[in-house]
Structure formats: C-alpha cells, structure tokens
Nucleic acid binder design. Structure first.
Lengths: 340, 340
DNA sequence: TTATAATTTGAAAGCGCTTTGGGAAGGAGC
DNA sequence: GCTCCTTCCCAAAGCGCTTTCAAATTATAA
C-alpha cells in the first residue's frame, strides 16, 4: 500500500493525503480525519526512503566508533547509546551505528555527510585535541560532542560532566580525611575526560602543597585486570598509598580483588573512591562496604545529548549548547580517616 | 555533485555512468576507467536514499532491543553488535539500532518491514517460546536468530552456542573432581540460553544420580550484585556447596567478593566455573587464581550471525542456516578436587 | 446580488538514482 | 555488397514521496 493507492482508495489526490498525514493546515478537518482513519485501517506506512529523498532529511543520527576498539570495549557506551537511542526513537529519529570496519572514522563521517545518511552525529570520547571537530565543521554536518576538547570550549556544541571538579572534590575529601598518599587509576589520558580527571586530582594535591608521584598514577584501559594489577602494584609500595581514586567501576572491581588479596580492609587500610556512570550491572551501593563515588548517569547524558543534537538539526541557527553537568560526590562506606 | 552533474561533466549519459560505477558489464573498459577516476576526483557519492528508493533495498540491518531494558543492560550486547556491525560495514551494510522508546518491540519490526527501513534483522536473546519468530515470518522480513527457541529448531535461521553441552560439561568436570553440592547462578530462565544451561546442569547431576536442590540455584539478572548476594547466601548454607557454576563473568566478579568475604579460598574451598563471552574488560585469565571457563566469543558470534543474515538477504531461497557452536571448557586454576 | 477573501483541493514537477528497451557503430560471415 | 551479431551508449520511465503553483469551492463583505 503506497500513497497513490491510498489516495485512489480515498478518492483524493496524493497531495491532500500527504498533507493530511503530515499535519499541514491546508486540509479540512473532516478530510483529515477520514484520511487518518483509513490510513490506519489499511496499515499504510510511508516509504522511508522516498520521504527522505523528497525532503532531503534522513531522520537518523549516527554514532561512529573508531576501529581500534579501545572505545567500544568500554561498557559504558552501550548505556550511553541506550539513553540516546531511546530519546531519538520517541522523537522519530533512527540510530545508525558504525563500529569499526576497515574504514577510517573520518571517512565514515565524510560518507555520512555526502550520501545524506544521517542528519547529525554524536561525537564520543573526544581527544584532548580532536581532529573530528574541524572535519565536521568543514562538512557542515551537525553534531554534538559528548565531552570537550582540552583547549577550547567554543565553536562546537557539547555536553560534558565536570570531571575536573569531580576528581578534585574526591581527592580533596581524601586529603581532608588525612590521606597524603593517594593513588590514581585513570583512563587513557589522551581522552579529554581522563585528562580532566588527572588535572582535578593534581590540583587538589597541589592545593595542599603535596607533590605528584608518578609511581601511584596509572593511565590506561579501564579494565578489571588493570584495576587489579595496578592497585596491587601500588599497594605493595612502601610507604603504600592509603587511598585510591578510580576512574571506572570496572577498575574498582579489580582493585577490590587486590585489596582482599593483600589482606587489607576497604575503608580502613585503604580508602576507595570510584567514578560511577550508573551502569546497571555493577552497583556501587551493593559493594561491601558500599562505595563512595563520584556519580553521573551516562544514560541520562546520552538522552540529553540526543536532545541537544535534534534541536541543533532542526534549528541550525540557534546558539550552540554548552552544558556542563555537576557531578555528585556520594559518601558511602569505602572512605574513612587514615589510620596510623 | 550528483549523478546528473557527473554525467554532464563526463559527456556521458546518467545510464552509462551509473553502470560504470556499479560494475555492470555493458560498458567499455576505457569508459569505465574514466568514469571511476573522475568520480573519485570530484568526490562524487551516490545519494543513499535515491539509490534505496530505486532499488528497493536499504542495505541496512536492524537491531531491536526491548524497552524493558533487561536485555541491553547486559554488557555482552555491545560486544555482539560490535562484531556484527563491523562485518556489515565491511560489506556495505549499515547498522540500525532501536533501543527502547515507547514503541513495542513488535511494532518496530512491523514498521521496519513496512517502511523498508532495513533488509533484515537480527533477533537477540530469544525466549523459550518467542513470538517474534511468527511475526517476522508473517512480515516476510529476513532474519537470523542469535540463539534458539526451546521447542523447535526448524522454520527459522539461527546460530547458537551449545549452552546445554557447555554447562553439562562444566558440571560434569566438577562432579568428576568429587563435588556433589554444586550451585548454579544463572540468567533469566525464560531466555533460552539460560534455560539450556539449566538443563545441562541438571542433566549432569541426574546422570550421576544426584538430585536437584533449588536452594543452590539462582536465576535472575546477571549483575555483579546478584553474583555476590546469591553466592554469599549459598556459601552460608550448611552443608555449603563446594562449587559454583556461573552464567556470566559479571556474576563471577560478585561471587569472588562473597568467597573472599567468607575467608574461603577459590580452587580449594570453593571451585568456580564461569561462562566467558570474551568481553575485553573482564578477563578470566587475569583473575587469581585464573578462572576455569566455558568460553565462546560473543563478538565472533556477532560477526558470523551478520554474515548469515546478509547471505539470507541476498539469497532468500537458500536453505536456512542452523549453526551450533561448540563451547570450549578451559581448565584453569579456579577448579580443584573437593576437600574433606 | 456580486465582488473579494479565505479555505480546500489537485496537477505536475522534482528529489537522485536504477533499469528497460532501443539504437548506432563496428566487425564477422556470406 | 549485404545481413547479423556484438559492443557500447542513451532517452525516458519509474521508485514513492513532498511541495509549488494554480484552481475550485465556500464563506464573507459590500
């Protein structure tokens, strides 16, 4: 069943039917009702491609993951996309995913733009100095960055959480509890969020007049195993750190193993603060003792980024959104005063 | 730059240019080379929607996740999709994702089919008696099931791993080591894979003349917390189970906490076998002791399912694929003979 | 009543591609 | 010389929508 057949069936022109269906005002109320009703009864659905060709809009948003996999292996991305895709679905936008393949990430954007496959893209995990921004600006493809570049916050739309502030707050809490040797287990620091966290951590130490010790800082893939290995390594140092700040729950999970293995007690011998993206399968509160966290829902961020992007697609001339989310520091049982 | 402009630029008709670009034989070699070269130089890209409208094929594969979230929260899905999407990208197919929204999963399939949005879909996490199969058969939308229904293996294309065999093997290994009280921490058992695992587990026990004890069986969301809580609960029973079989690495992670908390030793007081989907952020080998696992790469499964689906889309009359993957049982340090 | 404005409807063009049904040019066979 | 194939190319139709421009109908004003 296509438009033409539906129109014939109704004894109307395609024009009128199309208008009735799409809510244009130049159509009588009675006619509109009739059209809507019959379209529903006959199960008519407009062909997506025909509509896209005619309107020039694809009603789809693209997500491109680099082929080196270091991003998509992070389980937080499925939650981000779930949030975003959900919002999009409700607003009539499809979600296009591109994971790897042999094509370079930048080429995918180019192809997306030139073939009209998507109306906009969401840029994930921006680097400290990310070349994608310039490319997308050049292509004229609307986008919103989830995160920020390091140098500039202008010239592109973004939503980010205050990673710097969060890790500064977390580190400061530990300092206030008397800890002076505080380890950091971070993500890859060419990614801005990890870099910001590093900055927040260092800032808090410097504020107290403490120095930065590279021996108790790790930056790398946020796997359980890295959490374990590097927590173990650090906790074996003399003097050992009495507290650790961790960039992901996965790393916390590994660090817990290390702590147990050394016969130490969380919240007493070692204080832990982890960053919690609110992943449904790894719950900070369910740990024993429950985990003090910096918390921000990655899923909510996904939904909001999608919202900003759709706004941008539909009103390209509106001002670019810059949205910085505060991160809550939630005090639970894994942090305590340093013991002598 | 569109076809018309490119054709004019070359002094050829759209027909010839289109044929040259798409590899049709009725075009001179010299002409073809010229066309290809100029198209490249001028950066011509065919408009995706125009092509789709003309050919009636969308060159896209759809993934629909139920809105209740219980599926997508499982981190294995991002890895599955990464594998599938990767394969598709290499073969010129886009990946369409639908996560939740207010639309019912079945309605999404209907819409996909009627609007021509995708050429096929991959059905994830089939239920023991899954209504999606009948719907898709009715819609005539090609699909491949990742997993199986319980009752029948005919009438639909599928790829599955031998969950029943894997858990039977795992349980038998423990029995052979002298364990007689073996707990099971499983996924939601209305999902076929979990149901099959349960069957394999029970079969192995029954083969030895042992009975099934519901007190040491858990079925639910495979979160870290559930792993912890139910391992803890079971290990506190008297007599306590001397071994646990776990359906996911996430649950293993939680169970390890429980074991440590009770002051027990993995591989001695408690033997553990987990199912490992090969997730990059949680490594069975990196645990201490390393974890004995039933192992099957979910990412490889994703790639292969995509391959089967594309074959099905392009040759609808070929026989339906039924592919059952063997699951390796990899012996590592977390299993040992029962101690008196 | 008639002129004018407002409301509804339609015919047809156009979006950018693929593909059908020929047609011209050149070579082989007689 | 002619016919018959190939080989290579093209004009035009068609995919199923949206949208422009114009016409028909009805309501309002004079």
């Amino acid at each position: 069943m296509n438009l033409k057949e539906l129109a014939e069936h109704l004894g109307l022109s395609q024009t009128t039917v199309s208008r009735a269906l799409n809510g244009y005002p130049e159509v009588g109320e009675a006619t509109r009702r009739r059209v809507l009703e019959q379209a529903h009864n006959l199960g008519y659905r407009p062909n997506a491609h025909a509509r896209r060709l005619a309107t020039g809009r694809s009603h789809a948003i693209g997500y491109v993951f680099p082929s080196d996999r270091s991003i998509i292996i992070d389980p937080i991305f499925s939650d981000f996309i779930a949030g975003a895709s959900d919002f999009q679905a409700i607003n009539g936008y499809e979600t296009l995913l591109h994971a790897g393949g042999q094509e370079d990430e930048m080429d995918v954007y180019r192809r997306y733009a030139e073939m009209g496959l998507v109306d906009g893209v969401i840029v994930q995990a921006p680097h400290v100095d990310d070349p994608r921004i310039a490319l997308l600006n050049g292509l004229g493809l609307p986008y919103v960055v989830h995160g920020r570049l390091n140098d500039t916050e202008e010239g592109y739309a973004w939503l980010d959480i205050d990673n710097r502030g969060a890790f500064r707050k977390a580190t400061k809490l530990l300092l206030d509890l008397g800890h002076t040797r505080i380890g950091l287990l971070n993500g890859l620091e060419y990614l801005t969020y990890a870099w910001h966290r590093r900055q927040g951590y260092e800032q808090a130490l410097l504020d107290k007049g403490l120095s930065i010790d590279p021996a108790i800082i790790f930056a790398g893939l946020m796997t359980e195993e890295n959490g374990y290995r590097h927590a173990l390594r650090m906790l074996r140092l003399k003097p050992r750190p009495t507290a650790l700040v961790l960039s992901s729950m996965m790393m916390v999970s590994g660090a817990l193993r290390a702590v147990h293995e050394l016969g130490l007690t969380v919240g007493k011998d070692v204080s832990l603060i982890g960053h919690d993206d609110g992943l449904p399968f790894l719950n900070a509160e369910g740990l024993v003792p429950s985990l003090t966290t910096t918390t921000s829902s990655i899923r909510a961020a996904g939904a909001r980024v999608a919202e900003l992007l759709l706004a941008r697609v539909e009103n390209p001339d509106d001002e670019m959104a810059h949205e910085l989310w505060n991160v809550d520091l939630i005090l639970r049982g894994s942090t305590g005063p340093v013991v002598a």
